[in-house]
């Protein structure tokens, strides 16, 4: 299944894009993240949260959307 991933904040400096798609056949969000970590190893060192269907989810959550959002905290003010 093609999953659309949207990147925010400083994560786009690692991915060099604001969104991308990956081919995914797993079940859990954590499996999806593992694929992203292979593609973008520096993501591993960043704090971010994952949202699907407009809700923050953990790695243990099953993927049930074809779009997820990676959201880091911002510090600027």
């Amino acid at each position: 299944m093609q999953i659309k991933i949207k990147y925010f904040g400083m994560l786009t400096e690692i991915t060099n894009c604001q969104e991308g798609t990956i081919d995914f056949s797993g079940i859990y969000i954590s499996e999806l993240l593992e694929i992203l970590y292979v593609k973008y190893p520096s993501l591993k060192n960043k704090e971010f949260q994952v949202a699907q269907n407009q809700q923050l989810v953990s790695g243990k959550t099953k993927l049930n959307s074809n779009e997820i959002v990676l959201l880091p905290p911002f510090s600027g003010g």
Partner: peptide, 15 residues
């Protein structure tokens, strides 16, 4: 609850 873990020093630059 939104961001349980504080990013490490220098991980996120500021303005």
């Amino acid at each position: 609850c939104a961001f349980p873990n504080m990013p490490k020093q220098g991980e996120v630059p500021n303005c």
